[in-house]
Amino acid sequence: MKCELCNKNDAETVFFRPTPAGGKEELYVCHACFNRERAFLQPHGIQVAAMEAPESHTLTPPAKELPGLSQLSEELLKTMRDFFGVNSTRPHPTPEECDESPECPKCGMTFREISTSHTAGCPECYSTFRDAFAEMFTEQQGKAATCTPPPPRKQKLLELNRLKQAFNEALATEDFNKAKQLKAAISALTATLEATEHQLGEDDEQLT
């Protein structure tokens, strides 16, 4: 007999599902369906563990077993407390400390203003308060967030565009020597880019 829920696996166990009318319905299901259904019946809603992402798209893999709902909300509360500096072992700077703390030379915002309004004043704020930002990001997003450098903007493509522009300019001013050099540089760069392009195509397939 096939599982009555997925119709794919063999039925391995019996599952009593409450009906909206208040009764119970007897279903013969596979273990996978049983676990999912049971998780759904938890009084507090879906358990996080019951809805893990498909393996192909593993997100930040949990170090240990995913916490249950009650633990999770406790953890969440803790993160929030930490974030807002309540009962935190390492509190955010007090107002007095902030008065001493520097303002962003460009826009005059202090880090306290930034963290309360959750809005930075200018791009310079990020370098002025680099450590504070790094700390905030680590608290919110974990260590990896600030240890790993961000994906670089595609410098090579930019470079290519610039070279092409220069090439056109050289042609326009009839500076053929320069144009020749630029053309060589362009074809070299195009070759390396095609290799990366291939990679991009593969990423694309994963995405869909």
Binding site: T119, A120, P123, Y126, F133, P150, R153
Partner: peptide, 17 residues
């Protein structure tokens, strides 16, 4: 763009990509 944080945005949550 910042080498440590990536693209810089007014909302710090979006910094990076």
């Amino acid at each position: 763009y910042d080498d440590q944080f990536g693209y810089l945005t007014a909302n710090p949550d979006l910094a990076g990509a």
